[in-house]
Design a protein around this nucleic acid. Structure first.
Lengths: 152, 152
DNA sequence: GAGTTTTTTGCAACAGTATTGCATTATAAA
DNA sequence: TTTATAATGCAATACTGTTGCAAAAAACTC
């Protein structure tokens, strides 16, 4: 797994530094999108400023993409191999859980096809944000309801 | 027009203060969504902290809604009359212009219908963000191209 | 492997964004 | 008019994001 992050860095012509390997491994292993503070919390000592730069570098290279979730708090997730420095191809919806606050990529849900011209506006991209309750919180809600019913 | 903002404040059980009337008039008159700094720039002297509170109050009452545009910078726009304290009904897409940075409501473009259950996730809301070039920037681009062609 | 060049990091400094508390002011109600 | 309630202005603080520079690390060259 560690060799995967090294390979990605090599393929993108980036230096294989400790910070970059750690951050990239975190993204590779993560089931949901990560904010800067998520990453900070995952390591006991990491320079916040370097993190900003690392995230920007990774995004520019097409390694990670912005996971827009409607909260206005930036989160990023690992890209698919097809993304590159010249063209992000993260054409899928993101799901934001209103319970736990996690944001996940819904790769199987493509962003809607929209006419390129709408009322005189040129539409270059459409981004879909879904929000609701994730399966983990659903399970918790269900077990909470069961306990409540038992108490009654 | 001023009496319209007073009416909205009355209907929502809010005090009709100077700040609120000015801010609400700005929203009523604006063709695009407004950020806090947009509002600050529109008045020579207005307390930024009060602005934060005012926007939050208006949003909570269903007077304005968040115009999510993918930039992670909060913007708000006036709601339709159907929105209320208990339920926002701003079920339309927003368009963000990559040229000028403006964000407008596309009331005629509804957010897509999505199944309520997707892969074990309960989807309560879908939000569509469109980005590209607005008509005003298109016009400018066209006139710029014309000038360039003339120079060649 | 050593030396040189390039890239990245750590840190200071700063700018921008957002929230809380409290006294004062303004608005609404009696 | 007086009283009660809501809103504002301000200080203080926390959080988020950017820039510059020297030092450290990584990459390159011989």
């Amino acid at each position: 797994m560690a060799s995967n992050s090294i390979k990605i860095l090599e393929e993108n012509g980036l230096s294989k530094t400790e910070v970059r390997k750690k951050v990239l491994n975190l993204f590779i292993d993560s089931a949901c999108a990560l904010s800067l503070s998520d990453i900070e919390a995952a390591f006991s000592k990491i320079d916040r400023i370097t993190l900003y730069r690392t995230l920007k570098t990774f995004e520019n290279k097409g390694i990670i993409h912005k996971a827009v979730d409607g909260t206005n708090h930036p989160k990023y997730a690992i890209c698919e191999a097809s993304c590159s420095e010249h063209k992000h191809e993260d054409d899928h919806a993101h799901f934001h859980c209103l319970s736990c606050g996690k944001t996940v990529c819904f790769e199987h849900v493509p962003n809607p096809a929209i006419p390129e011209l709408l009322n005189g506006y040129v539409v270059e991209e459409a981004t879909l944000i879904l929000s609701g309750t994730c399966k983990e919180c659903l399970v918790q809600k269900k077990s909470r309801i069961s306990i409540t019913e038992t108490l009654e």
